[in-house]
C-alpha cells in the first residue's frame, strides 16, 4: 500500500513536474531579484512572449491533429514583410486584410498538401519553410522593409498601444488564447481534431472528414501566424526578411513543454500558453539574474529534455528507456 502511494506521488510529480519546476524557478528568481515579480516586469515578459505565444496556439491545433508545422517562422517573416510593404502602397486599412488573405492562402496550400494529398507534414512544411522564405525575398527584393512615416500611422496600435493600461499585444494574445481554447475544448470541431490526431483511421471509420479537419488546423495555424506578423510589424514598423527565422523550433519547444505529444491527440491551448510563459519567464529571470542570454538556451534544452522524459517515464512506469 505504501508502495502504491509512493508510485502515485511519483506519477503526480511527473505529471505536474513542469508546473512545479516553474513555480520553484519563479520563487528562486524572485528571491535573487525582487524586480522579477514586479508588475511591469511580468507584463513585459508576457508582452514579449505574445508573438511566440500566438503562433504556438495555432501550432497546437496542428500538433494535436497529428502533424507538424515547421513553416510558421518563415511564414511570419512573409506576413510581416507583406503588411509593411502594402502599408505604404494601399494604406493600413487594406494592407491588413490583404496580408491575412495571402497568409491564409499559404496555410490553405499546406493544408491541401498534408490533408487532402496526405503528404508527410514534416517534409511538406520543411519545403514550405524554404519556399516561403524565397517568396518573401522575392517580394522584398531582399531589402529590409520600413514604413516611411513611422509617427503618422495608426498601424502602430497593435504592437505599441495600451487599452486601460494593458498593452494591446497582451490583450490580443489573451483574446486569441481564450477563443481558440474554447474552440478546441468545447466545440465539435475541437473534438474531431483530437480524434483525427489520436487515431486518424478510427476517425475516418467514424465518419469524420479527416482531410478537412487537417486542412482546417493549418488554416488556424496560418491565421495565428498572420496575427503574429501583424503584432511584429506594428511593434517595429520595419523589418528584416528573416524576422521569424528559427521561430518554428522555439514554438515547437513551447508546445512540447506544454505536454502535447508530437504523435498527436493530446495537448491543450492552456498548456501551450504555460509552455510559452515558462520559456519567457526563464529567459527574463536569467537575464535579470545577470546571466547572459545564451544561458537560457541551455536551460531550455535541459527543461525540454527533463519535461518530456518525466512525461514518458510516468507513462511507461520506468525512468530508463527499455531500449537495449
Amino acid at each position: 500500500m505504501t508502495v502504491l502511494t509512493r508510485q502515485n506521488l511519483g506519477s503526480f510529480l511527473a505529471k505536474q513536474g513542469i508546473l512545479i519546476a516553474f513555480v520553484l524557478f519563479m520563487i528562486g528568481f524572485a528571491m535573487v531579484n525582487q524586480r522579477f515579480i514586479a508588475m511591469d516586469n511580468i507584463s513585459g515578459v508576457i508582452r514579449s512572449s505574445a508573438i511566440l505565444g500566438v503562433i504556438a496556439i495555432g501550432v497546437t491545433f496542428v500538433v494535436i491533429g497529428g502533424n507538424l508545422d515547421l513553416s510558421v517562422g518563415s511564414m511570419m517573416s512573409f506576413s510581416t514583410i507583406v503588411v509593411l510593404d502594402l502599408h505604404d502602397k494601399i494604406g493600413p486599412g487594406l494592407a491588413i486584410p490583404a496580408m491575412f488573405a495571402l497568409t491564409l492562402l499559404l496555410g490553405a496550400f499546406i493544408g491541401f498538401l498534408v490533408g487532402y494529398l496526405k503528404l508527410n507534414s514534416l517534409i511538406v512544411t520543411l519545403g514550405m519553410l524554404s519556399a516561403i522564405h524565397g517568396l518573401t525575398l522575392t517580394w522584398s527584393g531582399g531589402k529590409n522593409m520600413d514604413i516611411a512615416d513611422k509617427s503618422g500611422t495608426w498601424f502602430s496600435f497593435f504592437g505599441q498601444d495600451r487599452i486601460m493600461g494593458i498593452p494591446v499585444p497582451i490583450l490580443i494574445f489573451a483574446l486569441l488564447a481564450a477563443v481558440l481554447a474554447m474552440v478546441l475544448s468545447r466545440t465539435s470541431f475541437g473534438r474531431k481534431v483530437y480524434a483525427v490526431g489520436g487515431n486518424g483511421q478510427a476517425a475516418t471509420f467514424s465518419g469524420i472528414p479527416r482531410a478537412r479537419i487537417v486542412f482546417m488546423t493549418y488554416l488556424i495555424s496560418a491565421f495565428c501566424v498572420a496575427v503574429a506578423g501583424l503584432l511584429q510589424a506594428s511593434r517595429s514598423l520595419g523589418s528584416q526578411n528573416t524576422v521569424g527565422q528559427g521561430l518554428e523550433l522555439q514554438v515547437l519547444a513551447a508546445v512540447i513543454l506544454g505536454g502535447a505529444s508530437l504523435l498527436g491527440g493530446s495537448g491543450t491551448v492552456f498548456k501551450t500558453v504555460i509552455g510559452v510563459l515558462i520559456l519567457g519567464f526563464i529567459q527574463n529571470g536569467l537575464l535579470l539574474a545577470g546571466l547572459d542570454f545564451y544561458v537560457q538556451y541551455m536551460v531550455t534544452w535541459a527543461i525540454i529534455i527533463l519535461a518530456v522524459w518525466l512525461d514518458i517515464a510516468a507513462k511507461r512506469g520506468h525512468l530508463w528507456s527499455p531500449i537495449a
Binding site: 515547437l252 545564451y294 541551455m298 534544452w301 530508463w320 528507456s321 527499455p322 531500449i323
Partner: peptide, 30 residues
C-alpha cells in the same frame, strides 16, 4: 546517450540540443 537512455524521440532530443549547443556557441565568444 539521451536517445538511448531516456527513450525520448530523436526529433525532440535534437530539437532541444539544437538550442542547447547553440547556447554553448554563444557562451564561447558572445
Amino acid at each position: 546517450l539521451i536517445v538511448w537512455k531516456t527513450g525520448i524521440d530523436a526529433f525532440i532530443v535534437t530539437l532541444a540540443s539544437m538550442l542547447g549547443f547553440r547556447g554553448l556557441v554563444f557562451m564561447y565568444n558572445g
